[in-house]
Design a binder for these strands. Structure first.
Lengths: 153, 153
DNA sequence: TCCCCTCGTCACGGTCCTTGACTGTCACCT
DNA sequence: AGGTGACAGTCAAGGACCGTGACGAGGGGA
């Protein structure tokens, strides 16, 4: 193994580390969800279900929160509606808009997903100490925010 | 804004934070590369260029390092060859294999990409203190490794 | 020699994202 | 009241991207 790839192995940059953590967390989340009765969901559905409120959320709001195109959100809602996770209801405050509301199955998924993510963090807290994890998350938020602010993006 | 999405805004989980950091770092890297004379490269090319050694690397090795399928690596190499970033050379030690070797343009890109990533980390180090960044990266490596080890994946 | 493994490639289907244009509704201004 | 621009959601089409199966060529041990 050459010098450059060897160095990258020892001291991976922020991008590599983020990618590794993101994909491994994603994998655990959706495999566990599949075992708990939600086998048809894929990571992309997280753009909708991950940002949904129990009282309902507008499609445009979901698009804004997740950074996904409106069109994609529309497709995801179609799929989730067919799978029985959400319903489209007219928004009483704006006749153009529709509220995306989770069904009972949707609320079950949301609760389970939140619990799985919490369990992942608890596992790390036990392994490394609660305080060190808290420090990490604080620094993580700070860095992610500053990086997002690059060029006022 | 409802209670759940509000809470997720204040205390985003590890997946959300990883996604934000990954995509914003990726964006800065490739936009800056485009300004520095490499406008045709897209993030997916990182699977090849990011793990390449100056002396050359086998396609299978790139596949293993990046976690991408062999087939995808082959397509990427086709593109990068056409763009003048890499060359295919027969591997003297194994007539089945081919060494992927960066051209002068490829080595220029690799140096610039490494420098851009280093600049990103320097910027954070200046903003938050060198020591706190070092602590963060240490914890990051630890957590990412432990998460990857879930279920012996 | 025979058998099984690895390396890279071809071909294919399926998933996914992006763009542009369109209808209906709203908010604002004159 | 009417007119104008902005916004919500959808339809349609194209391209980018990924995963699978199968293959020829070569390697390496029994």
């Amino acid at each position: 193994m050459g010098r450059r790839s060897e160095h990258k192995q020892r001291d991976p940059d922020l991008g590599i580390l983020s990618a590794r953590l993101l994909f491994s967390v994603q994998k655990e989340l959706f495999e566990t969800l599949a075992e708990q009765g939600h086998p048809r969901l894929r990571p992309r559905h997280g753009a909708v279900l991950g940002h949904l409120d129990e009282e309902g959320t507008r499609a445009t709001e979901l698009s804004r929160l997740s950074g996904t195109h409106k069109q994609v959100i529309g497709n995801l809602i179609d799929e989730l509606e067919e799978l029985g996770y959400v319903e489209r209801r007219p928004d009483p405050q704006d006749r153009r808009a529709k509220l995306i509301v989770p069904t009972a199955q949707g609320r079950d998924q949301m609760a389970k997903a939140d619990e799985i993510m919490a369990a992942i963090e608890r596992r790390h807290a036990e392994a490394m100490g609660e305080q060190r994890l808290a420090v990490f998350k604080g620094l993580f938020r700070e860095i992610a925010e500053r990086q997002l602010a690059w060029r006022g993006a």
